[in-house]
């Protein structure tokens, strides 16, 4: 699979985070694993927040997987889910919400459709980066959900973009 390479400005996100093994209670493709619960927690908070409830209407959502040494050793990830926000508004955010700054300048975007979304696409990403002229430019990747993603119950009609931060191997 050949990804699209894009240049990007830094992306500022606001949302919520989970650290641990996302599948420690449930492992199915349902919404009840830790990531599903995290999304529910974020939506529930945003809908009730008096200042930032407008974010609940956002058309594009991000799920960021942040790796560390512990990720490799113990299978523990930080998973952050959120939405883009204007930088100027960051100081107004309540304590419940976190800010993530994704500073990479270049991304490879892989687009997965239908059943591909529930396949082992991370392996495709790993293989591509090992064989390409690029290397990882940050220990994270993110999934970008917009109107093309119809939900886990309509996965066959859905489209998902996955971004990995990259830079040229010679850089």
């Amino acid at each position: 699979m050949k990804p699209k390479i894009i240049e990007s400005k830094p992306i500022t996100l606001v949302g919520m985070s989970f650290y641990g093994d996302p599948f420690d209670t449930h492992a199915g493709w349902d919404e009840d694993n830790q990531i599903g619960l995290l999304w529910k927690r974020l939506f529930s908070f945003l809908k009730k927040d008096t200042v930032f409830s407008f974010l609940a209407q956002s058309r594009a959502w991000y799920e960021v997987h942040i790796h560390s040494e512990e990720t490799q050793a113990k299978g523990l990830f930080e998973v952050f889910v959120g939405v883009e926000i204007e930088r100027a508004r960051v100081t107004e955010l309540p304590a419940h919400l976190l800010v993530k700054n994704l500073s990479a300048e270049q991304y490879a975007i892989f687009t997965f459709e239908g059943e591909e979304i529930s396949s082992d696409w991370e392996k495709i990403l790993e293989t591509w980066i090992n064989e390409s002229d690029y290397q990882s430019a940050g220990s994270y990747n993110f999934q970008y959900y917009d109107e093309r993603f119809k939900g886990l119950d309509r996965i066959s009609e859905s489209v998902l973009d996955v971004y990995i931060p990259i830079k040229k191997k010679s850089d």
Partner: peptide, 29 residues
């Protein structure tokens, strides 16, 4: 590491963790 175990199974780490938990009912670690 769990990443080495995933590699031995031929899966990416993230996918392996999901599958292992689903099939063994333990997290790999």
């Amino acid at each position: 590491t769990v990443a080495q175990i995933a590699d031995a199974a031929g899966y990416s780490l993230f996918h392996f963790m999901r599958k292992f938990n689903q099939i063994v009912h333990h997290t790999p670690y």
